[in-house]
Nucleic acid binder design. Structure first.
Lengths: 245, 245
DNA sequence: ACCTGAACACCGTTCAAGT
DNA sequence: ACCTGAACACCGTTCAAGT
């Protein structure tokens, strides 16, 4: 897929043995920094213990001194990212404190942004979805706002769950469409600019007689997927209306 | 993790060369049958070209005569499952035709059930989310009902997208909680029934002073995750209310 | 305690060969 | 055309060894 770019050290470097790393070059934090970076840059498939170690300038097995294995690293990355979400400040400096509905909206937006900025986290969430209580700060503040909005305890828990589920699903969609768009651009670049006879009828080869509405609404559906953020906000508004009345 | 159960042939069988398979034992359909079965039974991690071939009673490379590789098989599995969703019949035999809102509800329920029954599809969806137009029949009928409910073209496309996003997110949550519950049961069985001193304070070790609402609502949150279907329906109703007014 | 290199049991896939 | 086995370049992880 990529050309022969070596991300860490050159092939020549990798051949001769690296100068031995100082005794305490590594710690959990440095490993996690590199893991998040590698995951976001290269994607989950390229997230390899060997690649991670190379990025740290260290032998592969050095990482095992600080983590029991790849799974523990993945768990730690997930916990860190979910905990570090850039949430809106609790007390806005200048303006009024927003109403509970507006605060829930802002919190969800922040969660969506986090997932959109770190597409690889989605892969981790899919492989091992969070406990619900792993969003900690996000959960705490969202639940508080939902209760303040007048919801009962059960209703608040249920609403929080629904909001989180929707947010993850929407982010998943956006990440997928981004990936697909990149793949398509790559394909078209490879095929060259000579496609005059392409696309005979249905945009995806779908029979328009069997799926009239689907084919007819294709442009609108493409729009909805294209601008993930705007689409997310529309859905979020609808969900909030249904949840808060 | 598992005991030494060999899913396909015994270790002795695997040692001596298998009797050569007849010329046309394999075809795309048989491969996909086995793939879906293996995926649902053993999970995505155990979904291996070697395991798949063994289940088919065939050498590993035989599969490559019908599929270009693992990715193509995964794509085909996803398309097949999404296309084969067990949707509610278009014309109910006895009763009245339901209103558009009720029909959308039933369609979404069917989609959720499909994802819940095939948890591994979720992994595939996460790795390469669908085009939106891969749900074909589901999309066609949902879009039709949304238009019938009075939505504009853009609104219908947006609403369909939101419903699908929410459905995938909710199914993801349910699958995750199921997996986690199984893992926990396994862990407890291993530890034996001697846990009298466990769980000192917060259910997950969360500081109750930092996360009062989250800790306080833990039972309700656990309930919301426990019965995935009921939780999904509550969220779906809220979303529909917001979308259809 | 922390880091290293070789080795083991896997994986997807290429390739030349069988029928 | 379809199926096979050996081989290649990976992967996560175990292990004995270095400092």
């Amino acid at each position: 897929m990529t050309t022969s770019s070596s991300p860490g050290r050159s092939a020549a470097d990798r051949t001769r043995p690296r100068t031995r790393a100082p005794r305490n070059t590594l710690n959990r934090e440095r490993v996690l920094d590199a893991a998040v970076d590698l995951l976001d840059r290269a994607g989950p498939d390229a997230f390899t213990m060997r690649a991670l170690a190379e990025r740290l300038g260290v032998a592969t097995m050095a990482v095992y001194s600080h983590f029991s294995g790849k799974d523990e690293i993945i768990d730690a990355v997930r916990v860190r990212l979910l905990a570090e979400a850039d949430l809106p400040s609790r007390r806005p400096e200048g303006g009024e404190r927003p109403g509970p509905r507006e605060e829930v909206r802002e919190l969800c937006r922040a969660a969506y942004r986090l997932l959109a900025d770190h597409p690889s986290v989605l892969h981790l969430l899919a492989a091992r979805p969070p406990d619900g209580d792993e969003f900690t700060l996000f959960a705490e503040r969202t639940l508080e706002a939902l209760l303040r909005a007048g919801l009962e305890r059960r209703e608040a828990a249920s609403a929080y769950t629904a909001l989180t589920q929707f947010t993850v699903g929407a982010a998943l969609w956006a990440a997928g469409s981004r990936k697909r768009r990149a793949a398509q651009a790559c394909r078209e670049a490879g095929a060259g600019p000579g496609g005059g006879t392409a696309r005979p009828a249905g945009p995806a080869g779908l029979p328009a007689d069997r799926y009239p509405h689907l084919v007819g609404l294709m442009p609108e559906l493409a729009d909805a997927v294209r601008d993930g953020t705007a689409q997310y906000e529309r859905g979020l508004d609808a969900l909030l209306t249904g949840l808060l009345g």
